[in-house]
Amino acid sequence: MDPTQAGMVAVGAGLAVGLAGIGAGLGEQAIGAAAVGAMAEDEKFFGKGLLMTVIPESIVIFGLVVALILLFVF
C-alpha cells in the first residue's frame, strides 16, 4: 500500500467510527433523558435505564468493526 492509500484507509476508518458515533448519540439523547426521568422516580429503573441507553451503541460497534476490518484485515 502506498502512503496515500494507507492514509485514505485511515480516514475511512475514522469516518466509520465518527459518523456512527454521531448517529448513536442522536439516538441516545431521548433514551438517556427518559432513563434519567424514570430513575429519578424509582431507583429500580437504574438497571433497565442504563441498558436501554446503550442499545443504540450497536451502531458505533458496527462502525468500529468496519474500521477494524479496514485497518487490520485489508
Partner: peptide, 13 residues
C-alpha cells in the same frame, strides 16, 4: 449475529 462483534470491539477499545 454481527452484534456479537462488540465482544471484540469493546475489548479492543
Amino acid at each position: 449475529v454481527l452484534s456479537y462483534a462488540r465482544i471484540l470491539a469493546i475489548g479492543l477499545s
